[in-house]
Design a protein around this nucleic acid. Structure first.
Lengths: 335, 335
DNA sequence: ATACTTATCTAAATCGATTTTGCAAATTTT
DNA sequence: AAAATTTGCAAAATCGATTTAGATAAGTAT
């Protein structure tokens, strides 16, 4: 019941292990193994159901054919879809995916990079969180193939791919303004991430462009418990300015907002227009449908993998290593 | 910039590789390495930032410290949560998770088992799909540690953990009947999976127990396109019997039903009561909230890992290897 | 003083592949 | 026909660990 090894094949075919290796790796010509022998070896290997021991291959070649995927959380919609696409694309290149989620814990993020590193993955796709800056820098300096997604660190020169956050918010804002909304609130999270800054900037610039002077910004503390955050949002919505539209900067905030709005008894979009960055199943189903900025998950994932493969040397011709992908506005009932 | 190997540590400490290995693996006492030397070696290893090459360890020991997780689809809510818990628990046992999704394609499922097998994972957690029966049988026969979840094959004796489907549906039915509903429709999928059979049986037995003779069952074809499925459900709901409640056997069907009901212009729960097997974000948010049977994801995942670890030999004392976990009824607005 | 333990560590085999180098026989060149 | 190549394959080193079976020196018993 033991697995057959290359040595077994060699013995059964009456040749040396090296010959078997050459033949099975397609180097028969190069090593001028006769056709007759090559075919015999292939036949024996097939008959015996031989499959190389990948661990041994990895040890010898230094390549594991595995990629490390580190995301914030697997349970989110975006990351789960992302992971799926990555898995499929990676498989197409002959790679498996080892994944791990940081669950927004800095220490865990740190450990993960370290552990996966020693697990010798051939490359990383990482959704960076604030605490990982030094880890990413270390990876980059040690010449490990890395691609960041969804965010990046301005100070570190690492390939990355993300949605054009500024453009996304701008699209949404243009849409709202065109519809006649003027007192537009913006709910974001107080995490120092470049993508959040871009989104905020999109909001501000859009207002300015249309000579709207009223800025209404709410920063939700990133680790507030749910109820406390809802209270914050509730005050924001029902407070003095009297908002006529609200823009949530992440889908997590959007869901929170949805619950808040529901509790306040507001009617969407009659009492309030709503738009959210990033789509979610709930937004599609929740009547009358939540307008949102949709990230092209598949394109982002494919691009990330392309960037990684080009670093690993599997593909070439990737010139731009800092890719921003345009999101699309999905207009539904709330605007 | 090269990684330090055990040999390097040996050289730097002026001892042999074997000694280093013994010390770092905690076998110093057993091999009677002097304390002084042991401490010195540990210090050198720490100073040089030594971490064993896991590939080499795997090759030598035959253990990869990786588990294969094969699920239907990563993009679903249940599986994503499940994967997260598995990942955390596996890490606690020192295992990484390599995952792959079958996306309901039989051929892919087949390949996955094969590929992961040659990737030498130490064990599998698998959500079986109809086409995988023989693969699972083969795994079991080759004594590979396997745990099935969410479903299983009656003909194959493999440890598994799943929710008690019969009990879940029964709970839901009792609830509906108690609330006074009598013309209850049941929407399921025509896949020959044991869990679907159990759910259907729960429906039937509940009706019978309460002397309700009207059975209204709709089988949605598992790979119907969305619109066609919606049309089917639409006919079912608005058709002759005049249902007053509807039970969806999976959350995918529930979402489909939600859209159908919305299109029909029905009001939940006024025109129709609804309940669904398996929870979903949408069910929580969609007003007035969809009543559902919730699977205890965390418990299922933890149990699955326990079962696997006990096969691998990391833990012991697991007596019952066919675990059914009780689901809970989450009453929301639609019933 | 000789045999027997015991303490402390090392040598070498091994896991299963890949790859560089080697080497005899066949073939070609001069 | 001797020298130089080419052909066709095998030997052996290597990747980086673990582990079995010694080896050496020191201490103990006889």
């Amino acid at each position: 019941m033991k697995r057959v090894s290359l040595k077994d094949i060699a013995r059964l075919a009456g040749v040396s292990p090296s010959t078997v290796s050459f033949v099975l790796n397609g180097k028969a010509k190069q090593m001028r193994i006769s056709n007759a022998l090559a075919e015999k070896i292939i036949e024996v290997a097939r008959r015996e159901g031989y499959h190389p021991n990948q661990v041994a291959v990895s040890l010898r070649t230094g390549k594991s054919n595995m990629l490390g995927l580190i995301v914030e959380s697997m349970s989110g919609n975006f990351f789960a879809s992302f992971a799926r696409v990555i898995e499929v694309e990676a498989a197409a290149h002959g790679y498996k995916v080892v994944y791990a989620s940081t669950e927004n814990q800095q220490q865990k993020a740190h450990e993960l990079v370290s552990i996966l590193g020693h697990q010798q993955v051939d490359g990383y796709i990482v959704t960076p969180t604030p605490g990982m800056e030094e880890d990413i820098r270390a990876l980059a300096e040690s010449k490990k193939p890395v691609v960041l997604m969804d965010s990046y660190f301005p100070g570190i020169d690492v390939p990355h791919v993300l949605v054009n956050n500024y453009e996304g918010v701008t699209k949404g804002m243009e849409h709202l303004i065109e519809k006649g909304y003027r007192r537009i609130g913006f709910v974001t999270v107080d995490l120092n991430l470049v993508q959040m800054q871009e989104r905020l900037k999109g909001y501000r610039d859009s207002l300015q462009k249309h000579n709207i002077s009223e800025e209404h910004i709410l920063y939700v503390h990133y680790d507030f418990e749910r109820e406390r955050a809802i209270a914050q949002v509730s005050d924001f919505i029902s407070g003095p300015p009297g908002l006529d539209a609200i823009f949530f900067a992440t889908n997590y905030l959007g869901l929170l907002g949805l619950e808040t709005i529901h509790r306040l008894g507001y009617k969407l979009p009659d009492n309030l227009a709503m738009i959210c960055f990033d789509d979610h199943d709930v937004f599609r189903f929740y009547p009358p449908g939540i307008t949102c900025i949709r990230q092209p998950v598949e394109e982002i994932a494919k691009t990330a993998l392309e960037l990684l493969m080009s670093q690993i040397g599997k593909t070439n011709g990737v010139t731009n290593t800092k890719v921003e992908i345009s999101p699309s506005l999905v207009v539904r009932g709330t605007s």
